[in-house]
């Protein structure tokens, strides 16, 4: 009985010690894990050059659960997608979306490289893709209504700029011809149906993207206003 009690007492003591120990470990983890996770994220990010993505992480002050999910995302993501996440994180079109949403978009992107002079979109033709300039420049040309009128360059778009976004908004024909103006010119292509599907599934994503498209069109109009002075 005594033995049993003692054993029981010991067991209880042991259990208490275990519980106390576990509490201490969990408590320590709760305090240090976010910092540790940030450090891991930072190390992984640095190694791949994803400082901008880390910036988003630290700005959003995730709770522990969210941070765990993001770590899982990092582990599950291919290098190619990580490259795209880094680039997409610095694109105005996606400014304001969460890292998880950023990853969703990265999964529907593909990278294409063009040579100087290659036509990417042709004015008047139907188009179902949205483009983001990754590297180099593209030249945006517009032809007037008169057949003899030669196309006029409206603007050059560099890194981080989008084009083809009107197809996403109105599904109309291409309003301008866009051709590569550097060798090479790299772009990310997103099919509008895929993009719309994601926006329909996630209305926050849809709202942010549409707001940013409106802001981008507004910026381009302001640029034209100054260019035409």
């Amino acid at each position: 009985m005594n033995h049993s009690t003692t054993a029981g007492h010991h067991q209880i003591t042991h259990d208490n010690a275990t519980v106390t120990g576990l509490r201490w470990i969990i408590g320590t983890l709760l305090i240090t894990l976010p910092a540790f996770q940030k450090a891991v994220i930072k190390t992984k990010a640095r190694s791949a050059g994803f400082i901008s993505w880390v910036g988003i992480q630290s700005n959003l002050k995730y709770n522990l659960r969210k941070t765990k999910i993001d770590l899982l995302h990092i582990g599950a993501t291919s290098e190619g997608t990580m490259d795209h996440i880094e680039i997409l994180g610095s694109v105005e079109l996606l400014e304001g979306i969460t890292p998880a949403e950023l990853q969703t978009i990265s999964l529907i992107c593909k990278e294409i490289s063009y040579n100087n002079g290659d036509v990417i979109t042709q004015q008047g033709e139907s188009g179902e893709d949205l483009y983001i300039v990754l590297d180099g420049f593209v030249e945006v040309l517009h032809s007037g209504t008169a057949p003899e009128q030669s196309p006029r360059t409206i603007v050059h778009l560099g890194k981080g700029q989008i084009f083809g976004e009107m197809a996403l908004v109105d599904h109309g024909p291409r309003s301008a011809t866009v051709r590569a103006a550097s060798d090479p010119t790299k772009v990310l292509v997103i099919h509008c149906d895929d993009f719309e599907q994601e926006c329909e599934k996630n209305h926050h994503l849809g709202y942010v993207v549409m707001r940013n498209i409106a802001a981008d069109l507004s910026f381009k109009l302001r640029h034209r206003h100054f260019a035409d002075r």
């Binding site: 420049f137 945006v140 778009l157 560099g158 981080g160 640029h223 260019a227 002075r229």
Partner: peptide, 16 residues
């Protein structure tokens, strides 16, 4: 940045 070259035929550029 919106770069503009006034008084010329140059269309300017927009880049990050």
């Amino acid at each position: 940045v919106s770069y503009v070259v006034p008084g010329e035929d140059h269309p300017g550029a927009i880049l990050n």
